[in-house]
Simulated scan of single mutants.
Amino acid sequence: MESLLIPVLILVIVAAGVTLAARALSRRAVGAGPSAKVQAPRQPAELARAASAKLTEEEHRKLYSLIAQGQAMAAIKLYYEASGEGLRASRDAVSALAAHPQTYRAPSLEPQETDDDDAPQHFPYRYRAIASKGDVTREVSSNMLNDEIYGRIRTLARAGDAEAAASALTRHSDISMKQAREFIALLDD
C-alpha cells in the first residue's frame, strides 16, 4: 500500500499543475485585451458558405466525396491544405460543410445581393414562356426569367392587373411593352 502512495501523490500533483496551467492559458487568451484579434463565432450555415467559397471546383468535389464516404479526417486534411487555415478552423469548416451542403459556385458567377426583390437577374440558362389562346401563340425566351418570376407574372395577369404583369415581363425579358401586353392578354382568362 505504501508503494502506491508516492506514485498517486505524484499523479495528483501533475494533474493539479496541468489544470492550473490550462486555466492560466485560457484566462490569458480571454483577457488578452482590446488589441487581441477576437472573432465572433459564425453560424454554421454562414461558415459553410464562406468555406465553400475558398475551394476550387475540383477541391469542392473531392471534399464532398470524402464527406460522403465518411472520411472526416481526410476531408479536414484536404480543406486544411486547400484553404491554408488552421487545423481547428478546418475541422469547423468541414463540419459546417457536412451539416449545410453547398453547391459549387464559380467566383465570377456569384449573385450580387440587391435590395429590390423584383430586380432582373441573369440566369445561366434561357427560360421559355409560351401562352396561347385559340390559333394565337406567343413565346418569350429570356435568361432573366425563371419559374418563380413567371409565376408572379401569371398571378398578376389572372388577378386582372395586366399592366403590372406586362411591366414585369418587359423588365425580365427583351420584349417591348406592346409585345408584353399581347402575351399577357393570352394569359388573362
Rank of each mutant, 00 (worst) to 15 (best):
A16Q: 09
T56N: 03
E182D: 11
V14P: 04
A50H: 13
M1I: 12
R138S: 06
Y64M: 01
D147L: 15
L63S: 00
R88F: 12
S142D: 00
A157H: 00
E163H: 06
G33P: 06
E57P: 00
A162N: 13
L5Q: 13
I13W: 08
P111M: 07
H100I: 01
R28P: 01
A157D: 05
L145Y: 02
A180S: 01
R91H: 14
L55M: 07
A96E: 07
T103Q: 09
R49P: 02
S173F: 01
R105E: 14
R128D: 06
D188E: 13
L47H: 02
S65V: 10
K178Y: 04
Y150V: 11
E2W: 12
A74H: 14
E57Y: 07
N143Q: 10
P120T: 02
S90E: 01
A157L: 06
R23M: 14
V136Y: 04
L186F: 08
V18S: 13
A24W: 09
V38N: 15
A51Q: 01
L145D: 07
T170Q: 04
P44M: 13
V140A: 01
L169S: 03
P44A: 09
D118G: 06
E182H: 03
V14R: 07
L63I: 03
I10S: 09
S132K: 08
L20I: 12
V136M: 07
S173C: 09
A93K: 04
P111L: 02
L156E: 06
S83Y: 01
S83W: 02
T155W: 05
R126E: 06
V38H: 11
Y79R: 00
P41D: 09
T114Q: 13
G70Y: 09
G84V: 04
D147E: 12
Q102H: 04
M144G: 05
V18W: 09
S35I: 15
E85G: 05
T170P: 03
T170G: 03
F183T: 00
V30W: 12
H172T: 06
A131G: 04
L63K: 00
S65I: 10
K54Y: 05
I130Y: 01
D117K: 15
A72T: 11
